[in-house]
Simulated assay, not measured.
Amino acid sequence: MTMSQNDVQHYAVFTRSARKVVLSGTETEQEAQEAETQEIIIPRPPTFKDVHQQRVHLKQRLAIGFRLLAKYGWDEGVAGHATVRDPEYPDLFWVNRLGQHFGTIKASDLVLLDHEGNIVRGNRLVNKAAFMIHGAVHQARPDAVCAVHTHSIYGKTFSSLGRPLLPITQDACAFYDDHSVYDQFGGVVFDADESHRLVTCLGPRHKAIILQNHGLLTIGDTIEAAFWWFVAMERSCHSQLLAEAASVNGVHDLKVIPDEIARATAKDVGTSRAGFAQAMPMFDIVARENPECLL
């Protein structure tokens, strides 16, 4: 994913003013001239000199993502997992090991799996459901660099309703016509038939799926986007549950954003570049608070 100058212009003010000013007491005339010629930095996903550098970066970002989930209390025993596709071997993916709390995961703790469920690197067990779900997602969706699933409280509560999110807020519009509801629950995902049905429901383009009686799963073409969609979807579930509870007639009282406006809003808040940008402040603060996760 790249972010062009036109993309940035759509989201932020970034052009340099032609007006010449000197901030009295703060800078000299020479310093003012130098400030006026500074290039304005446009945040973009990093580029890499080699695949090793890229792999290190991806594993570190995945570890930060786990710490982010832990920060919000979205861990649930041995349930929950997130994966990233290896940049050199796209048929392999990195995943958290079984029974490690999200708040302790480091880049070096991740385990590399193949699509047959074999451990390629690492010496710890992996949750079988993680392999069944994520292996199927990565096989079915070449665009899915990262996938995130855990049993967050509002996501799993909302999933029991067996229906999609409504566009009742600007943030919820990110998922307008871009998520599915898997309306079957066959127990823990331990067999190929269940994982196949799940990815079939996810479809070829949706970035998220509500797993009925289970929870949420989100994907992205960057790690940052995939984790942001999970955060945003969990919060949207929370928001809709509160709105329905506060309404006399439940869902029938909600002021749902009209389709045309929701669709247009989704083009602003639901794109991959928007997901990447939204996640950056969270990833930055989590990395500062947990520098050991990069090891």
Rank of each mutant, 00 (worst) to 15 (best):
E244S: 05
L295K: 13
S239M: 15
H115G: 04
A277E: 14
P46R: 01
H101N: 11
H10Y: 08
P46L: 07
D221R: 09
A243L: 11
I219T: 15
H214S: 04
Y89F: 14
D143T: 06
D183W: 09
F93V: 03
T28N: 00
W94R: 03
G103A: 08
R67V: 10
I42F: 10
I257P: 04
H115I: 12
H138M: 02
N6C: 08
Q278F: 15
R235E: 15
Q9C: 11
S239E: 11
R163S: 14
R235S: 03
G73K: 07
I257H: 05
G73T: 08
Y176F: 06
H115T: 08
Y72T: 06
H252R: 02
E76G: 04
V256T: 10
E39T: 09
A246V: 04
C201Q: 07
D75S: 10
H52Y: 13
G186D: 06
V120N: 05
D193E: 15
M233H: 07
Y176M: 00
R44L: 06
D114V: 12
V56T: 13
L161N: 09
T157I: 15
L202I: 12
P87N: 04
D75K: 04
C173N: 03
T218P: 07
L68V: 08
T15W: 06
V126W: 03
G250P: 14
D253R: 06
S159V: 06
I210C: 08
F131D: 02
L161I: 03
R205C: 09
L241N: 08
L166E: 01
Q33S: 13
E27H: 03
T26M: 11
G99F: 07
V51A: 01
R19A: 14
S195K: 12
A12L: 14
R97W: 09
S160M: 13
I153C: 10
L68H: 05
N213G: 06
S239G: 12
E36T: 09
L92C: 15
T200V: 11
H57P: 02
D50Y: 04
S17L: 00
F227E: 15
S180T: 15
Y72F: 15
H138A: 00
V21H: 02
D7L: 03
D109I: 12
A18D: 13
V148A: 05
S159N: 04
R67S: 09
T26S: 13
V256Y: 11
R55M: 04
A192G: 06
I261K: 07
P258R: 00
I285K: 12
L295F: 10
F175H: 02
F283Y: 00
N290T: 12
Y154W: 12
D178C: 06
F283D: 01
T15S: 11
K207Q: 13
V84Q: 05
K255G: 04
K255R: 10
V231K: 08
Q53K: 12
K71I: 01
A35V: 09
S195E: 11
N123E: 13
A32Q: 03
V145Y: 10
V22W: 04
F283C: 01
Y11L: 07
G162M: 05
C173D: 08
L62A: 05
K71E: 14
L62N: 02
N118D: 05
Y176W: 05
P164T: 03
N118H: 12
